[in-house]
Amino acid sequence: MNFLEIIDKGGPSMYPLLLLSVLSIATILERLWFWSRVVFKERKIFNRLMEAADRNWDLVGKIAQEHINHPLGNFVYSPFRLSNPDPDMFHIALESAAEEQLARMRKGDKTLEAIIALSPLLGLFGTVWGLIQALSSIKISDLGTADTSGVTLGIGESLISTAVGLLIAIISLSFYRLFQAFWSNQIRVLRRTGSRLEVMYRDRWMQEDDDQPKNIVVDNEGYTFVNIKPPLNEQ
């Protein structure tokens, strides 16, 4: 049987199954294109960011901005949009960016989940409908005669829709699990990158705070306190 014969003999459920198959293929191709750009560039961006963080912190924001279209670059650049944030704000900015990027990575998952659930059910409906049509034409007087051969053929053709529905669901589920594995790996990458940058930023912040000039001041009532002068660029 060619493609058109399969569609014709599969029954009325073949048309929604055809629509789901096209939707599944389109979603899979779009996600494959997205993840290929993410995975292949990820190691290079991570190494550049960590090397810059170790040598010259000011370059981290510039490198992240160069890769703003990559999830890792967008994630790292988020706190650098703020003006001299404290460590807590730095953490909140990274956390917010991580949620946004992880949600972006899950685009298409709901579509594949719906296809995986609906395809077998539509295939089963097509089979049941075909069985009803085939068995409704049986007469008691025809049992055991050659007239029932058409019923056997009809039952065999009614199973086409179930096979097609299962095939669509299996392919969609395979790629869905693959994309879930990519997504889980990105959680680890973002968590590792964010933790390392937070530690470096907090250490840098503490060093700058210790380097600020301090004066011991005695007020009129004899109380002594420390007067911390702001940096020259903030005076």
Results as ranks from 00 to 15, higher is better:
G222M: 04
V218Q: 09
S21W: 03
P71D: 01
F179M: 00
L143E: 05
T127S: 09
L82V: 03
V218L: 10
R37E: 05
L32G: 08
S136I: 00
V38E: 09
M200Q: 13
I132F: 14
F3M: 08
I187L: 13
I7K: 10
L17D: 00
N84T: 11
I216R: 11
L19I: 15
A117H: 10
V39T: 14
A181N: 07
G11K: 02
M14A: 03
I228Q: 05
I171R: 05
I132M: 15
R204Q: 13
T152C: 06
D210V: 00
A98H: 05
V164G: 02
Q212T: 03
N233G: 04
R31N: 08
D109A: 09
F75I: 01
S24M: 13
E66F: 10
L118M: 14
R202K: 14
R81M: 11
N185E: 13
L82Q: 04
F46M: 14
N2M: 05
R43I: 12
P79N: 05
A163S: 12
K107M: 05
W57S: 03
D8I: 11
I92K: 12
E221H: 12
I68Q: 09
R192G: 10
D209I: 00
D147I: 11
L135E: 03
Q207N: 10
A52G: 04
V199I: 15
R106T: 08
S136T: 07
A114D: 02
T111W: 04
G130F: 02
W205S: 01
G154W: 01
V128C: 07
Q186K: 06
V226A: 11
A169Q: 04
N69D: 14
L59H: 09
I116E: 01
G108L: 01
F80L: 02
L167Y: 07
K229N: 13
L135M: 11
L112P: 00
L131S: 05
L82N: 01
I6M: 15
S83C: 09
A134N: 07
I187D: 06
S158P: 05
T152L: 14
S119Q: 07
L121W: 06
E100Y: 07
K9A: 11
P71A: 10
T148F: 12
S174M: 08
Q207G: 04
L102K: 02
A103G: 15
R191M: 12
N215L: 15
P16D: 06
E234A: 15
V76G: 00
R81H: 08
L173Q: 10
E198M: 13
H70Q: 05
D88L: 11
F179V: 02
E95W: 06
N227E: 14
E208T: 11
F182Y: 13
L94D: 00
G61I: 04
G130A: 08
P85K: 10
L17S: 02
